[in-house]
Design a protein around this nucleic acid. Sequence first.
RNA 1: GGCGCGGUAGCCAAGUGGUAAGGCAGAGGUCUGCAAAACCUUUAUUCGGGGGUUCGAUUCCCCCCCGCGCCUCCA
Length: 466
Amino acid sequence: MALRFYNTLSQQVEPFEPQDGKTVRMYTCGPTVYHYVHIGNLRTFTFQDLLRRWLLYRGFELQHVMNITDVEDKIIRKAMEEGKTIQQYTSQYETAFLEDMDRLRMQRPERLVRATEHIPEMVEAIEKLAAGGYTYTSDGSVYYRISKFPDYGKLSHIDVSGQRAGARVDVDEYDKADARDFVLWKGRRDGEPYWDSSLGAGRPGWHIECSAMAMKYLGDTLDIHAGGIDLTFPHHENEIAQAEAVSGKPFARYWLHAEHLMVESQKMAKSLGNFYTLRDLLEGGYEPEVIRYLLASVPYRKKLNFTFDGLRAAATALERLRNYKLRLETGKFSGDANSAALDATQKARAAFDEALDDDLNTAEALGAIFEFVRETNTAMDEGKFGAGNAKPAQELLDHFDSIFDVLRPKQKEGAICDAEVEALIAERTQAKKTRNFARSDEIRGLLAGKGIVLEDTKDGVRWKRK
RNA sequence: GGCGCGGUAGCCAAGUGGUAAGGCAGAGGUCUGCAAAACCUUUAUUCGGGGGUUCGAUUCCCCCCCGCGCCUCCA
């Protein structure tokens, strides 16, 4: 079956095809840069990265835009507390975010766009909404009048008619005519950053940035809009209300939402002391690739229960795959391709692709890979894996890694170089020939101290960095 | 209360109207100077509970129990 995704809009799995059949226009909600992103954020971004890669593998061209929210209540408050401008305050976290992306091997979207660099676009969108009668002004702020947009609620499947005006406390501290309404433009307040505009001095509301930037770079109708599940309402619902009121066209064809990550079965929260950033985990000695593997291994629509046991299990599982890769690269295989091993490889490849086509079922895709690894390992043990089997196997592994991107660990700084390792291995081999096991073990220990693991195999010594 | 997601072996987790992938952990074994790596066997007569439909349900329907999320700015 062809590529398909679960669409929040229809609440069904639907075949996917970009509107022009060729280029996927995708917008994903990026971070609000008021702190380091946490592993829950990274789970969502990992999903977006897998999505990117799979779309590219499937032959589509990709125009992927990710926003960076760099003006927002919390940012303003924090920046003011620290006596910084919001740019000074956010730039450190934006840089940190990009570093985190790199460490987790996330590809950069075609465009990363900052909210503060698109104020005119947002003002223009709000003006259009105003012209259409979708807005009202109260106390210097501009609001979206939800009652003007009959489709409101179609994404989150929430019936807003039951929510009465004024039923809830106005946490925004701005006056609204209806509790359901949301702010498009916040009037200037003392001490806060603001922009002068035809709407008056002020700053944009959160939701308008995504609608305005998405439409600017991707057109009125996106193919895919993705983000965390908690953004479904109200953020994405509001984006739809804004964009569709402006353009009169559907805003996005497919809405994909990643489920949350839990920590030890609990919601991650600073108050629970289970709030982790990537930095926290790296300081704990966990490899970024292991973290990526763990985040990628649970299908995106399922809650991911993050535990340190799980992280250790991921490390072991990943090591198994890397051992296999090493065996494939260093093993001496001879003879023609064994047909059973070839079948196993082809079968795994088909199963892997089919699993990812099926709404990015990464768990099933991994299952196919591990099965392939076991079957071909057995074949190697039994001498039923010929030289002709190595290439297809290698290609499958490369294919896997072009999506998961976890097999090649980053070389550590100051590590012993290959030549030195090889020289010591040669000496050890000599020592073994003369049955000088004391020296042989000494060299093994020496290398182990430098993070090098030796394995004696029938084809010679195999070594790896750990 | 409304909307949504989920409850599958010790843990993580896939899955289908026809009788349970895969990973981790555990136990035993093969191999081995040692150490690894790898492989084999073993670990769910059963898929939260109870009804129903069916020749047959973990998979469809109904009810119940439990966990979690959203319901105004949290990925």
